[in-house]
Amino acid sequence: TGIVNVSSSLNVRSSASTSSKVIGSLSGNTKVTIVGEEGAFYKIEYKGSHGYVAAEYI
């Protein structure tokens, strides 16, 4: 489990890349469940599926 540490919002992406499609966003202080790690990204549970967020902001 981690907490989103941004002042505005954090993009949730379809894969572990900044060039991948943005599938949603999370606001600051949102609690997320981390299920894996790929490079600089965490794989998280997101809306019944999975998404990827930049690990530096969690």
Rank of each mutant, 00 (worst) to 15 (best):
S49Q: 12
S20E: 03
A40M: 12
G48E: 08
S20T: 06
S14H: 10
G2F: 08
K21Q: 10
S25P: 03
Y42C: 07
K31W: 13
S15W: 07
Y52P: 00
V12H: 00
S19D: 13
A55E: 04
V22H: 04
V4E: 03
E38D: 09
G51I: 03
G24M: 05
S20A: 13
S17N: 12
L26P: 00
I23D: 00
V53K: 00
S27C: 15
S8N: 12
V4N: 03
E45S: 07
S9P: 11
S17I: 06
L10G: 03
E45Q: 08
A16Q: 03
I34S: 00
F41Q: 02
S49V: 11
L26E: 00
I3A: 05
G39S: 05
Y42T: 05
H50W: 15
V35Q: 05
V35K: 05
R13Y: 15
S7N: 11
V35Y: 07
V32C: 03
S7G: 11
S8K: 12
I58P: 02
T33Y: 10
I34H: 00
A16C: 06
N11D: 15
K43I: 14
G28T: 12
V53L: 03
R13V: 09
T30A: 11
G48K: 06
V22N: 04
I58H: 01
T30D: 10
E37W: 14
S27K: 14
R13S: 06
S8V: 12
A54R: 13
A54L: 15
S15P: 01
E45Y: 08
Y52H: 01
E38F: 10
V12Y: 00
S25K: 14
S20Y: 07
N29P: 06
R13F: 15
S19L: 11
L10A: 12
V6N: 08
H50Q: 06
A55S: 13
S25G: 06
Y52N: 00
T18V: 13
V32W: 02
G36K: 06
V53E: 00
S8I: 12
G51V: 03
S49G: 15
V35E: 04
S27N: 11
N5E: 06
V4L: 05
V53G: 01
S14V: 12
S14K: 12
G36Y: 05
V22I: 14
T30C: 12
Y57C: 15
A54K: 14
I23L: 09
G28D: 08
Y46Q: 00
H50R: 04
G28A: 14
K21L: 10
G48Q: 07
I23S: 01
S20W: 04
L26D: 00
V12S: 01
F41G: 01
S20F: 06
G36R: 05
N11P: 15
V6P: 07
V22Y: 05
I3Y: 15
I34R: 00
A40L: 12
S8D: 12
T30I: 08
S17H: 09
S49R: 11
A55P: 02
S49Y: 09
S17M: 07
N29A: 09
Y57E: 07
A55F: 08
N5Y: 07
V35F: 06
N29Q: 11
E56K: 13
A55W: 06
V32P: 01
H50G: 04
V4W: 03
G24R: 01
F41P: 00
V53I: 08
G36H: 06
E37V: 15
Y46H: 04
E37L: 15
H50Y: 15
S27Y: 09
S25T: 15
R13T: 12
F41I: 02
V12G: 01
V6C: 15
G51T: 00
Y57L: 08
T1D: 08
A54C: 15
E45C: 13
A40V: 09
S15E: 13
T30M: 10
V4T: 07
S7Q: 11
A40F: 09
S7A: 12
F41D: 04
S8Q: 12
V53S: 00
I34P: 01
S49F: 10
E56M: 11
K31G: 06
R13N: 09
V12M: 02
G39L: 05
E38C: 13
A40N: 12
A16N: 04
